[in-house]
Design a protein around this nucleic acid. Structure first.
Lengths: 251, 251
DNA sequence: ACCTGAACACCGTTCAAGT
DNA sequence: ACCTGAACACCGTTCAAGT
C-alpha cells in the first residue's frame, strides 16, 4: 500500500524528493530555492512583482529554465503558499483551547505579514510539509478531548478559515498595508461615511440603523483585536460545547 | 452630513450613479452592462476568459473604451464580485438561527456555482448594493436577540468567512468542477493516499493517526454536507450561547 | 538532463486622434 | 464626452538548439 499512483511532480518536490538525476549536467536548482526566491520577491514587491522572469533572474537562470522544476506559474504559487508558512507554535502541553487560540492568531498574523498570501491561499486542501505540520499540531492539541478525528479536522479547518477571513478584513480596511487604495480598498474611518451616503434606509433598514449607531466604524478600527477574539471565542465555545456533549452525555 | 468627500467613481457607478453627462455623445454603456457581460464570461469560461478585450468585444466596444467606466481591471473584478450575488433569501419571520443557516448555506452555494468568485472575493468590506443587502438581512435576523450592532456585524462576518472556507474546500477537492486538475487540485479519494505516502509518522504523529483512521477521506467526500453543517453549528452554538449570556445574566 | 534564446500569442494600460 | 486604433511594456509558455 502507498505506492498506488505516482505523486504529482510538484508535490514530490515540495517534500524534497527531487528526481534522481542519472546522466547529463547536475541540476543547478531545486524547488525550495526557487520557492524561497519567489517568496522574498512577493514579500518585497507584492504578487505583482512575481513573474517567471523576475523569479528566474533572482536565482540566476533564464525564465524558461524554471519549467524544469514547475509545471506552471500556478504550481509555483501553490509551492509559495506552503513555503511561506513558518513552523507552528509549540504545544508545550497547553490546554487545547489555549493552544488553538494561539494557533489561530498566529495564522492570522502570518497572513497579515505576507498579505499576498490572501490572494494565493485558495484554502485548497493543504499538500505541503509546512501547512500539514500546522494541521498536525491542531489535531494533537485536540487529542485528549474525545472528538473523532474527522471532527478535529473540521475544527482546524473552521479555525483556519476564520483566520483567513479576519486577515482579509483587516487588510481590506487598510490595517495592514501602506498602499492604501488598490482596488476599492477603503480606510475604516471612511467606511461608515461611505455607507451613510449610499444607503437607502428603506431598502437597507437594519444596516442603516447599524451605521447610525456607529457600529460600522465611524471611529477607529472597525476590525480590531477585540473583534478577532470575539469571533474566535464564538467558534471555541462551540467546540467546547461539543466536547462536553461527547464526554458528558451517554453515547 | 454625508457629502464629506466624493465617492470613488466605481463605487458611485455600482450604485447606479452614473455621472451626469453634459455635452458630447451619450454614453453607449454603463457599469452594470459591462459587469454583467464580464460575469457571463467568467461563468462560461472561468476567470481566465475575462480580459479587458474579451469583455469589451462582448459589449461591442474597443477594449480601451472600458476605461471610461472602470479605472482598472481590478476595479472591474470588484464590481463583478458584487454583481454576481443574487438577492438574499427572504426572512419570512424565521427565527434568527434558522434564517442564518439558510443565509450561510446560500452564500456557500453561490460560491460553488460561480467558483471564479473564490479567487476574486477578497473578503474586503462589502461596498456594493448586492453584498450589502445580504449584510442587511443578517442584521435584521438578529434584531430581536439583544446583541449589539457591532456584534451582529461580527457574527455575519464570521458566517460569511465560513461559507467561503467551505466552498473553497469543496472546490479544492474537485467537488464543484469538471476541470479537475488545475494547480495541484486533488480528488478527495486520492487525498488520503497521497498523505499516507508522503508523511513521516514521527514528524506528523497526529496527522498520520488521522490518515490511518480514514478521517482524511480514504472514501468518498471528505467534505460533505454533514461537515458543512457541523462547522456551521459550531458557530451558531457560539452565537446562541452569547445571546443567552446577554439576555439571561445581569448586565 | 539541464539550460538558453528566439518566438508566439497574448496581456493591461497610455495616449493622441477622430467625432 | 465618448470611443477608436496604434503603440508600449510587458506577460506565461512552446520548442528547437546547444552542451
Amino acid at each position: 500500500m502507498g505506492e498506488e499512483r505516482p505523486l504529482p511532480p510538484v508535490v514530490a518536490r515540495m517534500w524534497g524528493r527531487e528526481p534522481v538525476t542519472r546522466r547529463g549536467p547536475r541540476p543547478r536548482l531545486d524547488l525550495a530555492t526557487i520557492t524561497a526566491a519567489a517568496v522574498e520577491l512577493a514579500d518585497a514587491e507584492g504578487l505583482a512583482g512575481v513573474s517567471m522572469a523576475s523569479v528566474a533572474s533572482r536565482v540566476g537562470v533564464a525564465a524558461t529554465a524554471l519549467y524544469r522544476y514547475v509545471g506552471s506559474k500556478e504550481e509555483l504559487l501553490t509551492a509559495m503558499a506552503d513555503g511561506a508558512a513558518p513552523p507552528p507554535p509549540e504545544p508545550d502541553g497547553q490546554h487545547w483551547r489555549a493552544y488553538l487560540e494561539v494557533w489561530t492568531r498566529a495564522q492570522r498574523d502570518i497572513l497579515l505579514d505576507h498579505s499576498w498570501l490572501l490572494t494565493v491561499a485558495r484554502l485548497a486542501p493543504p499538500l505541503g510539509p509546512r501547512r500539514l505540520l500546522w494541521l498536525d499540531r491542531a489535531l494533537a492539541a485536540l487529542a485528549g478531548t474525545g472528538l473523532r478525528d474527522g471532527e478535529k479536522v473540521n475544527v482546524a479547518t473552521a479555525l483556519t478559515g476564520y483566520a483567513l477571513t479576519e486577515a482579509a478584513l483587516v487588510h481590506g480596511m487598510g490595517g495592514g498595508d501602506p498602499q492604501l487604495e488598490e482596488a476599492g480598498i477603503v480606510g475604516a474611518a471612511d467606511y461608515g461615511e461611505m455607507l451613510a451616503e449610499v444607503l437607502d434606509p428603506d431598502a437597507y433598514p437594519a444596516l442603516t440603523a447599524a451605521v447610525r449607531s456607529g457600529a460600522m466604524g465611524g471611529g477607529e478600527g472597525w476590525v480590531d483585536d477585540a473583534d478577532f477574539v470575539f469571533g474566535l471565542n464564538l467558534l471555541l465555545d462551540g467546540v467546547e460545547a461539543l466536547i462536553h456533549r461527547r464526554s458528558g452525555a451517554a453515547s
